[in-house]
Each structure stands twice: as C-alpha cells, then as structure tokens.
Design a protein around this nucleic acid. Structure first.
Lengths: 198, 198
DNA sequence: TTAAAATATTCGACACTGTTCAATTTAATG
DNA sequence: CATTAAATTGAACAGTGTCGAATATTTTAA
C-alpha cells in the first residue's frame, strides 16, 4: 500500500480530527477551512477528502468530539459537587463549557446537515448522552412519584438553558442589558423542578 | 449623474434588500451569495458593494427586515387574540413565524458580527422591539405589585422559548423523541409567570 | 528477487465565493 | 456642447469545497 511511514489509516483520521478541532476552536465555524487543516498536518487536501469523504462529515466528527468533551466536563463538575447543589453545578457547568469553548460550542449549532444526509448513529448516541446526564439529575431532584416526568422535563430544561446560553454568547443579552444570564437560567430551572415536584 | 433610468439610490438599496431577503428565504444562510443577488436584479456585483459596502452590512439589513416582519406577525396574532389566551398566542406566534420562515429565522442567529463591527442603532432598536412586545404581555399577565419584574422576566422567557424553538427547528427535539415543543415551551412560560405572580 | 496488485497520496482543474478598484458609461450642469 | 460628477461595470485576486486522473508507495504473489 501507499501509506506513509508510520501512520495507519485510523491514526491519520485522528490527526485530521485533532487538528480540525484545534482549528475550529481557534477560528470558528465561519473561517474554518479544510485546506488549512490539511496544510497544518502536512498532507494534501485530497488525502483529507479520501479519509472523510466530505466537509460535512469532518465537521460532524469535530462536533462529536466537542460533545464528548462537554459531557465529560459536566460529569467532572457533578463529581466535584458531591452533596452540594447539583442543579446549580449542572447549569453553571453548561455555561462554563460554552463560554470557555465558544467557537467549538457554537459550531455545533452553526452546522446544518445537508438535505438527504442523516445523523450518523455515533453522533446521535453522543448527543443523547448529554441529555441523559441531565435526565438523571432531574430524576434525582424529583420526588419518587414524579420520576416518570424526568425525561421529558430534562429535554425542556436543556432547551431552556440552551436558549439562555445562546443569548449570552451571541450578545443578545448584553444588548438587552442583561448581566446575569446564568442566574436567570437557574431560576427558570428551579421553578420548573418545583412545579413538577408536586 | 450616472444613475440608471428611474432608480434612485434608495430605490436601488431597496431592490437589493428585497431580492436578498428572497434569496435568504430560499437558500438559507450557508448558500447565500451576494453575486447571485446582483445577477437577479440585473446589476453587477460592484454596484451591490457600492451600496452596502460589505456583505455583513447587507446580511444585517436582511436580518433586520426579518425582525420587522416577525414583530409584525406577533402583533397581528395578539390583535386577533383579543380576550383569549394571549400568552399562548405569543408562544405559538413565535414558533409559527420561525417554522414558516425557517431560513430567514435561522439566518438571524447564523450571522455573527465580525470583531470590531458593532450593531447599528436601527438593528438594535428593532430587536428590542420584539422584546418589548413580550415585556408588555408579561406585565399584563402579572399582578400589579409584581410588574417591576416584567422586563427581566421577559428577557428570560424569550430565551426560554428561543431555546425550544431552536431545538425544534434544528432537529434536536426530533432526535430526542420530543414531538410537542410548543406545549413544552408554553408549560415553562406558564410556570415562570405563576412563580413570579405571588 | 522481481512482477503484479492494492492502496495511499498528490496535484491540477473546476466552479464557486467575497472584495477591491481603475476604467467606463451615463446623466446633470454651466 | 463641454464639463463635471455620479453611477456602474467587470476584470483581477485570493480564497473556498470538490473531484478524479495520474503518481508514488507498500504489500503480496510468483
């Protein structure tokens, strides 16, 4: 075969992904360039396309990695919040990751699948993973006789916090004169949990 | 002057804007092309840049127009909901506009101002206008001794509904198995209003 | 060891994109 | 009509994603 020295196919894919992820973090979705990624790892643009097939699949893989890191960050926050306010830890962790990785976080929502291409299974699983973390905490925050409401409520609370986080990062809240988006989101989450509890 | 037949400068700007808005509605932010807009109105690309200066300013103007239409649609819904459930009318109107104009609605959030360029005053005013509509309804839904809480609560509720709407349109809710995002958002809004009322 | 097969990689070509600006056309004015 | 001023053009530039024929490399078979 024509493989170059010591890079297996999987290792090459990993190189591209790692450099792509780095690039996305640095310049963001709008300025992301596959050619630039290829240049930085010392391969030609053609090789990149041979490995990932299309730009959309590469971006999908990059966003998957971001999702994995995000879930990991949330789990770490929760582990460190043993006993204390776990709901607050969750909401603050959500915002903290988005703020500290704004380009990566926004790229998740900047990217749209082209018509006719559906989400690969692994991506789907990863995104569901984050919701499951929230669902588990929501369930724990509810009295036992209300636990069946947890999955649907979790979806809604993720959307609620997402909305506040998106407005915080894109400047909408700043334009409206809002300075404490995290507290605002947390208040909404608390109300919803309290309402679901009884 | 070299102006062509019967088009004044303002009329030309309006032509570009109208065609740009049409294009954005048809193909969406990612496939939007200034060249294509110029071609469709029978002017060269250079003229378009002479009028709007930069692509960002054109997109900003297009998104402004969308905001104006959105506010108008909400006002119309509220006017038709005399006496009946105005909060429901507001939430359903929010979703309806986004769904019926998904490319235009998403373009508002797809576009990011380049560093160093701040939001023109007219845009700022238009966006604030939408929040004011919500703030007025929120105030009306609260007892008098709680009215001062309306502006901040309104910002939060807009963010809440935005989050649910974004997930509905980008397919996140579908992937999570959620089929009724509007009802979900409405439930959160009702809870927040009830909590703020007492 | 050598020839053949299989795989990896490259690179140029294509059709786009936003952006700029000297040259040109058009209309209004003296 | 000549001049001036404004509007408009379109070529040039540096990018982009995408594709595929040609090339290079490695593995396998003889």
């Amino acid at each position: 075969m024509g493989r170059r020295s010591d890079h297996s196919r999987a290792e090459l894919a990993e190189m591209i992904l790692a450099e792509g992820h780095r690039q996305m973090a640095e310049v963001g979705f709008a300025r992301f360039s596959a050619r630039e990624v290829a240049k930085r790892i010392g391969y030609s643009i053609g090789t990149l396309y041979n490995v990932f097939g299309t730009l959309d699949r590469l971006i999908l893989a990059i966003n998957s990695r971001t999702f994995a890191l995000w879930s990991e960050a949330l789990r770490a926050r929760l582990a460190a919040a043993e006993g204390v306010d776990r709901i607050r830890a969750l909401v603050e962790g959500y915002f903290a990751f988005a703020r500290e990785n704004s380009n990566l976080w926004m790229a998740i929502y900047d990217h749209r699948l082209p018509a006719g291409m559906e989400m690969p299974e692994e991506e789907d699983r990863l995104r569901g993973g984050l919701t499951e973390i929230v669902a588990a905490e929501v369930a724990a925050a509810l009295p036992e006789h209300r636990r069946e409401a947890a999955p649907r409520l979790a979806r809604s609370l993720v959307a609620t916090v997402h909305g506040h986080c998106a407005f915080a990062l894109n400047g909408s809240f700043a334009l409206m004169g809002e300075g404490e988006p995290v507290e605002l989101a947390l208040a909404r989450v608390r109300e919803a949990l309290a309402a679901a509890a009884q």
